[in-house]
């Protein structure tokens, strides 16, 4: 509750800082989308509404004041659901498939499944280099090649990677990386498989 109040205070301060003119165009943009869009499949109109993180990132050009960012990251962090069994490592082979698959959550897909009936993908290679053997990778995120080899294999790193995939915004409020657990895109088992892809010593990522 305390963080909530602090957040409201922070938002009020921000609102004052932003010029009335920019607010107008922003409001017009939001109204324009609400007027012009329609729900399609699983992509409902509620997807146009911002949550707190999105609001703050949108209003600060993805560069919120440090104290506000830290407070909101804390809120996001507290909502991460870590595995009840305390075990973070799944099967890296399954993880590789999830990392390769880009399909999920578009208006062509189903809840939890792609349009082809496969489990949701994580789009990881769309943004990251991971296993060096895959040369078709994006550059929005940093390289994750040799992740375990360079960052270590221990439980603390495992927990960090699980949390980062579950909710990237808990560590970097306006990150370009989606909140894949928080948004319901990936299941606990799928995230464990991805942790294994990055942190299992036998994974090709660490060869």
């Amino acid at each position: 509750m305390k963080t909530f109040q602090a957040t409201i205070f922070g938002m009020a301060a921000l609102a004052i800082a932003i010029s009335a003119q920019a607010q107008d165009y922003r409001t017009q943009a939001i109204n324009s989308m609400h007027r012009d869009f329609h729900a399609h499949g699983i992509a409902g109109m509620d997807r146009l509404d911002e949550d707190t993180v999105q609001t703050i990132c949108n209003r600060t050009g993805n560069n919120p004041p440090k104290d506000l960012a830290e407070r909101l990251q804390q809120d996001q962090f507290e909502a991460i659901k870590y595995p009840a069994d305390g075990n973070y490592l799944g099967d890296w082979k399954a993880g590789e498939k999830i990392a390769q698959r880009g399909r999920a959550m578009t208006w062509r897909d189903k809840i939890g499944k792609t349009s082809r009936g496969e489990p949701n993908g994580g789009s990881c290679y769309n943004c990251h280099e991971i296993d060096k053997k895959t040369t078709s990778f994006g550059s929005i995120g940093n390289s994750l090649a040799h992740f375990g080899k360079t960052r270590g294999y221990g439980p603390a790193v495992q927990k960090y990677v699980y949390g980062k995939i579950y909710n990237a915004k808990a560590f970097n409020l306006c990150s370009a990386m989606p909140r894949l657990g928080h948004s319901g895109t990936l299941t606990e088992a799928q995230i464990k498989d991805l942790v294994a892809l990055l942190l299992d010593p036998n994974s090709p990522v660490n060869k």
Partner: peptide, 8 residues
């Protein structure tokens, strides 16, 4: 510049 939706 408007971020929204399940993938922000």
């Amino acid at each position: 510049n408007y971020r929204a939706g399940p993938w922000d």
